[in-house]
């Protein structure tokens, strides 16, 4: 049974979900246009079985994918002024927020959770692209600060998973200020000696990329993810040239030295577990065994590297 089949949907979106009707059973791959049976797609972690295209995951699916036993606890997002500019375009921003909440079941474009990955505690902040394009406003900035502080408190690494078009225009310059505020969150982690890992997913652009997303100690990207500052259309219009093949894709960034690795979704948990264990268990386990004369208790294993990490 896959992680997704066992995964419980948030209640609010559950209410709005229509009963399964035939067109829901098949989904078309955005890349190769293959029709894929939903069970097959989900058991394959929403990666196209034919062309390996990584389809987008919601925040809940992300968290379930990474945490051991799909178990995690989310934290309540800090309260903020929701519509500081009383912004209105073709729609009121407050209405857009309401719709996004009922569609995703989340308060804003980010979910912060803690649990264990590969047996080690970790805090994860995952963006939900379905919530206003994963855009970053005050709530997202505030949540990233809360996530960083939770990670520091727990002496656990922070993994941030952006999937975002950038700053949230409806909050004007206050969304721009989140670039500074999220950079402070990263600095707080670094001062506390807590590892900060970024998993860049499709898409990561604009003000999100140009702040916390590019400041990871370790930067991992999902295959094919678009990662960049300016959108491809803006660049094309500015330079009036065709963009090179694979431009701004994860592999392109890796080849240009901008990320550490591109990791297939199937290997993500394994890779993160290894990374976390390398950063956590920095001494050979054998030393502990020889001192105690028997197998170490779980708390020994836990405490020792944590205090080392905090030095």
């Amino acid at each position: 049974m896959s992680w997704l089949e066992r995964f419980a949907r948030p209640k609010v979106s559950g209410l709005f979900r229509k009963p399964d009707i035939p067109h829901d059973l098949w989904e078309k791959c955005e890349k190769c246009e293959q029709m894929i049976f939903h069970r097959e797609l989900e058991s394959n972690l929403r990666v196209c079985p034919r062309c390996d295209h990584h389809m987008r995951l919601g925040a809940d699916q992300r968290l379930a994918l990474l945490f051991d036993g799909e178990e995690y606890q989310t934290i309540e997002l800090p309260a903020v002024d929701e519509d500081p500019l009383r912004f209105r375009d073709r729609k009121r921003y407050s209405d857009r927020l309401r719709e996004a909440r009922s569609n995703t079941g989340h308060d804003d474009a980010i979910v912060v959770a803690h649990g264990k990955i590969g047996g080690a505690p970790a805090v994860v902040a995952a963006f939900d692209f379905g919530f206003l394009g994963g855009s970053m406003g005050t709530a997202v900035g505030e949540s990233l600060l809360a996530a960083a502080r939770l990670a520091i408190l727990q002496e656990a690494p922070l993994i941030v998973i952006p999937s975002s078009g950038g700053a949230r225009m409806q909050e004007g310059v206050l969304s721009l200020m989140q670039m500074a505020r999220t950079t402070i969150a990263v600095d707080e982690l670094k001062e506390a000696g807590v590892p900060y890992i970024v998993l860049l997913t499709n898409p990561t652009t604009g003000g999100v990329t140009a702040s916390f997303a590019m400041l990871g100690d370790i930067a991992i990207a999902e295959p094919g993810a678009v990662i960049g500052f300016a959108g491809p259309r803006v660049i094309e219009e500015t330079i009036r040239e065709r963009l090179p093949e694979g431009f701004q894709r994860a592999e392109y960034l890796r080849d240009h030295g901008m990320v550490d690795m591109v990791v297939h979704r199937r290997k993500l948990r394994e890779t993160l577990s290894l990374l976390l264990s390398l950063l956590r268990d920095k001494k050979p386990a054998a030393e502990i065994i020889s001192l105690h004369g028997d197998a170490p208790s779980k708390s020994d294993v836990k405490d020792e590297p944590a205090s080392a990490g905090a030095e």
Binding site: T183, I184, A210, F212, L215, G228, A230, I235, H256
Partner: peptide, 26 residues
């Protein structure tokens, strides 16, 4: 705004901006 160009992206426009914000703060 920051220049939106191929070279700018290849050489890490976002990373350069992020590090500059970090330096201003630091």
């Amino acid at each position: 705004g920051a220049y939106p160009g191929i070279g700018a992206e290849e050489r890490g426009q976002s990373e350069a901006i992020a590090r500059c914000i970090e330096a201003c703060l630091d």
